[in-house]
Amino acid sequence: MHGLGELEAAVMDVLWHEQPLKVRDVLERLETPRKLAYTTVMTVLDNLHRKGWVTRELEGKAYSYEPAMSREEAAARALRDVLASSGDPEAVLMHFAKSASPRESELLRRSLPRKKRSSTP
């Protein structure tokens, strides 16, 4: 996901599949090539909280974490960031529109609000 490191993205993937989860729960569900320490996952979750990607609630002595947004909202936010950093968002959108499948084009058409026609010429 745009704006996240590899481990942060893996943690978010775990949380998008099941939540709320505590650090140990996330650690048990993470599929990484190397064994991670509890403190590593705790630091990643703390960083994600600081960045606004997750919310947390204290349950006893440990925090329980949930995504602050859905995967789809995060993808839309990433797209917005790409457009903002492109230098020419209009050109990027035009290239995207040309590459969209017929299904994607139809979804875009249906989701955009229709402008009301003025009754005055």
Rank of each mutant, 00 (worst) to 15 (best):
H95Y: 13
R117M: 09
K22I: 03
A9R: 14
P121H: 10
L7I: 12
G60N: 00
P121G: 09
N47T: 13
P113M: 04
P102Q: 13
L112W: 05
P113Y: 04
H49E: 11
D81T: 07
E18W: 06
D13N: 08
E57V: 00
L79N: 06
S111I: 08
S85W: 01
L58F: 03
L30M: 11
S70T: 15
G52T: 02
V11D: 03
L107M: 15
E6P: 10
R117H: 07
A62N: 07
E6F: 07
R56H: 09
M94G: 05
L36E: 02
L83R: 09
E6V: 12
R110Y: 06
K51D: 00
K115M: 13
P67F: 03
K116N: 10
K35V: 15
S118A: 14
A74V: 01
D25Q: 12
H49F: 13
R24P: 05
S86I: 07
E90M: 11
L107R: 15
D46N: 13
S118P: 11
P33Y: 05
E31S: 10
V11R: 04
L112C: 04
H49N: 12
S101L: 13
H2N: 05
M94S: 11
L108T: 02
F96W: 12
L4C: 00
A75F: 01
R71P: 03
R56L: 07
K115Y: 09
P121T: 08
P67K: 03
A78V: 02
D46G: 12
E106V: 07
K22L: 01
D25L: 03
G87H: 05
S86N: 06
V92Q: 02
A9L: 12
P33F: 06
R24Y: 09
L112H: 04
H2K: 09
